[in-house]
């Protein structure tokens, strides 16, 4: 402040400030133009946004013959099993992955990979979360071997082990666009090998940096739809697959 401070001026300013200030602090709301409004002039709040769907009110939900719900999941006793957890919208809301692989085909390859190694599989549907890591960590808790695979509708897949932190993994396949049916079979195979106590070579994947650029927005949109099918507090359900 280079100029000399003018006492009268400050005095006047103080008076003005006092006149414009009420006893208590009030919410300072800016002029109405700053409040975003919808086109019809209505103020929008979070309350009138879309609520999550349940199968009953979900326009895209389809009951499938090959994907039968057979009750709440139970912990597995057999060490010879791998649990495959699918996300809330899998198969019954979405039918394809981000790159168009049918969920039916993906499950067939994952299960075939497990069976090839002489192990059994159980498929469960998760409702609590749409996050692939948390799907997997819910599944490995009930997996007899402690090994689970989780897959989201868009195709993102993880192999997880019981003693790991949720966001840790044995193998993570974060780039759904580069996964092929062969990759899914290899993922099933490797999960079974971990369940047998082996240390398999990780499934090789292609690193296509442009895949993310092309698919990330679409991937976001699919995940939003998936997340709308999350049901907090709802236990996972056992699924009986009829793939033949």
């Amino acid at each position: 402040m280079s100029q000399k401070i003018n006492k009268q001026l400050v005095d006047q300013i103080v008076r003005n400030v006092i006149e414009n200030t009420s006893e208590t602090d009030q919410a300072i709301l800016f002029n109405k133009e700053e409040k975003p409004q919808s086109s019809d002039g209505q103020q929008i709040s979070a309350e009138n946004q879309v609520k999550n769907f349940t199968p009953e009110n979900d326009p895209n939900f389809k009951q499938l013959d090959w994907f039968e719900h057979v009750g709440t999941v139970k912990p597995g006793r057999e060490k010879e099993e791998v649990v495959i957890a699918v996300s809330p919208a899998f198969a019954e809301v979405f039918r394809k992955t981000l790159t168009g692989l049918l969920h039916w085909d993906v499950l067939r390859q994952l299960t075939a990979g497990i069976e090839e190694e002489g192990l059994k599989y159980r498929v469960i549907k998760i409702y609590r979360t749409s996050d692939v890591s948390f799907c997997a960590s819910e599944a490995d808790q009930i997996s007899g071997s402690g090994i689970s695979i989780a897959i989201q509708s868009k195709g993102t897949t993880i192999i997880h082990q019981k003693d790991q932190e949720p966001l840790d993994n044995l193998e993570l396949f974060p780039q759904a666009p580069v996964l092929t049916l062969e990759t899914y079979r290899a993922i099933g195979r490797n999960a079974a090998r971990y369940a047998k106590g082996m240390s398999p070579d990780p499934v090789p994947t292609v690193n296509d940096m442009m895949a993310r650029v092309q698919y990330q927005p679409l991937s976001g949109l699919m995940h939003i739809q998936e997340t709308r099918r999350v049901q907090t507090g709802k236990d996972a359900e056992e699924i009986c697959l009829k793939l033949d």
Partner: peptide, 13 residues
Amino acid sequence: NSKNDPAPSIKVE
């Protein structure tokens, strides 16, 4: 500036 973003305000007591 989403239509759902809140308007700025603060109140201190």
